[in-house]
């Protein structure tokens, strides 16, 4: 999973893809996930961090993470 290198995320959750000119809003957990992808963290580690930080069960977190990944792909934010 690699976020396109030019994609920028601001602290306020505003995401801009200069390649397509598209902009997006991202909620805080989404921001954390994108930053983790940018740091090339493996998915298993990202999932663990979510489970540590939030009150959520593993299945839900994993399903949502996969869905989020699909959306990033859909919006062409991933190479």
């Amino acid at each position: 999973m690699k976020i396109r290198k030019n994609v920028a995320v601001s602290d306020s959750g505003f995401l801009f893809n200069p390649l397509t000119g598209d902009s997006f809003s991202v909620n805080p957990i989404g921001q954390t996930i994108i930053s983790s992808f940018k740091e090339n963290k493996p998915e298993s580690e990202i999932l663990e961090n979510i489970l540590e930080e939030y009150r959520v069960d593993k299945n839900t977190a994993e399903k949502d993470l996969n869905d989020f990944k699909r959306m990033l792909e859909n919006y062409k934010l991933i190479d």
Binding site: D22, S23, I29, E53, Y54, R55, T60, F68
Partner: peptide, 25 residues
């Protein structure tokens, strides 16, 4: 204390630009 969970969301800010082919690219 663990935080309340909210699923990750990404939302395009410039939606509504569909062309007749249904793509925005």
């Amino acid at each position: 204390e663990k935080k309340t969970y909210e699923r990750p969301i990404i939302k395009p800010l410039n939606s509504g630009l569909m062309n007749k082919f249904g793509t925005r690219t």
